[in-house]
Nucleic acid binder design. Structure first.
Lengths: 190, 190
DNA sequence: ACAGAGTGGAACATCACTGTTCCGTTTTCG
DNA sequence: CGAAAACGGAACAGTGATGTTCCACTCTGT
């Protein structure tokens, strides 16, 4: 689907499309009702050009949505959540998701922006995480008093907090991630 | 300041004012750029009436802001953060803040809504929490590897997560709070 | 150099939200 | 009860974002 020849794009088009999507995530993660002019400016692109790529605001949103879905799926895949001890896999997952950066904020902060049908259906990464937690409980390495859904909540909440911490408090991202990992591990360990 | 005779209000006025503020928090916490008409409808009040209490949108925001500041200060005070073992005090603080409900989401999710000067200056509850963490470190009951600022981040992030968890997953608020408390305690304990 | 893709700016109509005014109705309270 | 307070609805102009069109400019590859 990604390489659908029907929508194949030249190098330049793909590049500006990326610039727009990245800028949109960056801007909207801080100011969810920013005007399209602000997004265009942040992307270093004319407002007209943006409308060529995303005719309506809704199109931009679904563009962001699909992009985030791909990035989350790729991150999940890369972390190999089914491999090795559950706590180690959880660490890998946390690190992989942390790399989503501002996309984290947008995903958690403004879920109502994404009315995409794909967003509800595509819960595979979610299910992978739940399976991981179940495995940890079977292993006896994850606190059985915490429900898998709550552990999932904790993971995303701490990621959110860590990213904000790095963003606002001037703490290097690496340090924020380290604090996040340590906290998560302690919180969910049996 | 709360009972400033200059802005003393009749019973009815105070009551509708409360209804508007509560509705505004409820609506804006889910949809930060909701129209004033939506807020008025949620408050069961005409748009005209709302403009009588809060002439401009900015006035409504500062109204919410001041209300939240008061509630946070009151909650902090009620939790007596300077009393007893640090971890127990942290528990009390967490419970007290959880009662802020949707105000939590608004505070964490849309801090940019509040351009109030009072918001930056009034960091007393923040400072109380930081002192509490320092005390716990001195006691040896709080993990010295976690910076006080990060512990603060964790508290708010977990509160956010717990509230969302209760809201979206249908988990009773009491259970969500219990999970939150257990998780927080494990995460920050030495 | 040249054709064509890609781009930016200006101008425009449209639309939703906003803030305001006016007036009739309902509620509160002395 | 009757006056004052409080309210709701309708109507209106102003404003900023949006989506669209048109034209001129700048790259890119051959």
């Amino acid at each position: 689907m990604v390489d659908d020849p029907a929508i194949a794009e030249s190098g330049t088009r793909a590049r500006t499309r990326r610039a727009i999507l990245d800028a949109a995530v960056r801007v909207l993660s801080q100011h969810s009702n920013a005007s399209l002019a602000e997004v265009a400016a942040a992307a270093g692109v004319g407002r007209t050009t943006m409308h060529r790529y995303f005719p309506e605001r809704a199109d931009l949103l679904t563009g962001i949505s699909n992009d985030l879905l791909e990035r989350i799926a790729a991150a999940t895949d890369r972390a190999q959540p089914e491999t090795g001890p559950a706590l180690a896999a959880l660490d890998r997952l946390c690190q992989a998701y942390f790399a989503l950066g501002d996309g984290l904020l947008l995903t958690l902060n403004e879920p109502h922006l994404f009315t995409d049908p794909a967003w509800q259906a595509e819960a595979e990464p979610d299910r992978a995480l739940l399976r991981l937690v179940e495995r940890g409980r079977a292993e006896g390495t994850i606190d059985p008093e915490l429900t898998p859904e709550w552990v999932q909540s904790v993971l995303w909440s701490l990621l959110y907090g860590a990213w904000m911490h790095a963003r606002d408090s001037g703490v290097p991202e690496h340090d924020a991630l380290a604090l996040c990992l340590r906290t998560l591990r302690k919180a969910v360990a049996a």
